[in-house]
Design a protein around this nucleic acid. Sequence first.
DNA 1: CGTCATATGTAATGTTTCCTTACATCAAGC
DNA 2: GCTTGATGTAAGGAAACATTACATATGACG
Lengths: 129, 129
Amino acid sequence: MDLESRKQLPLFSIGIVEKLTGLSARQIRYYEQHELVKPARSAGNQRLFSFVDVERLIQVSALLDEGLNMEGVKARMKRLVANETQDKKQSEPTDQQVFERMRQEMLEHPGGSGSSEFQGDLFRFYRKR
Amino acid sequence: MDLESRKQLPLFSIGIVEKLTGLSARQIRYYEQHELVKPARSAGNQRLFSFVDVERLIQVSALLDEGLNMEGVKARMKRLVANETQDKKQSEPTDQQVFERMRQEMLEHPGGSGSSEFQGDLFRFYRKR
DNA sequence: CGTCATATGTAATGTTTCCTTACATCAAGC
DNA sequence: GCTTGATGTAAGGAAACATTACATATGACG
């Protein structure tokens, strides 16, 4: 079995993942509800997390700390995964990809200069705190 | 945290270790009784195994398959651990160590030529099956 | 200011997994 | 045939986890 497979082995109970990530069980389940992780299940329906799951949860936690909300995290994670898989095919990004990154960057860090009527709407990606 | 510390993190419940090692919970607990592994415990007294523990259990399983019994496994494991730690200090074994290895080898694979009155006694290290 | 939505805490209740202890079994050797 | 060593299995209790529902804090926004 190669490293990639190992990292996807369902190994950890939610209690261990709490300690590994610093998140509460409530948070972990909430993020699962939003499909940010999809842990496997035991025969008795208990969650079993892989290394990949744990890494994702840590990423999610970091993005929340950056001020993003669930929807923002989802958007960013989707972009991250897309970049990862594409990075394996070709390291050089196409112009189209660069453009897309810029667009996303603006989406996630708005208020630079535009400040249009859509400004307020972008806050749907930011957390209230 | 370095790799060595990571490998000692108490991460796995006994159910997972059953799957990782192919051993039954009964076997794992029995080997623990014989101090072949010493898993950590949760606040609620449940066993928590590390990678090191899992590796040791797999070693134990292999040695049992070779025909050793508990006492034989203990002796061999003790020797393995001793060699590992000493290997970190010096790769070159001394003559004394080589001699000791030969002696252990003969102990574990008896009957080559000696066949003395002690022959039968050595079977205390072998399994009945 | 009051309301609303989001992220998280907490409590209730049932199920799964694990614990220890004890007894059963099976093979091998004497 | 009787031990002995390794493992299976059952019983009863405790820990960990599941789902669901309700509570709460905080910031946005009219």
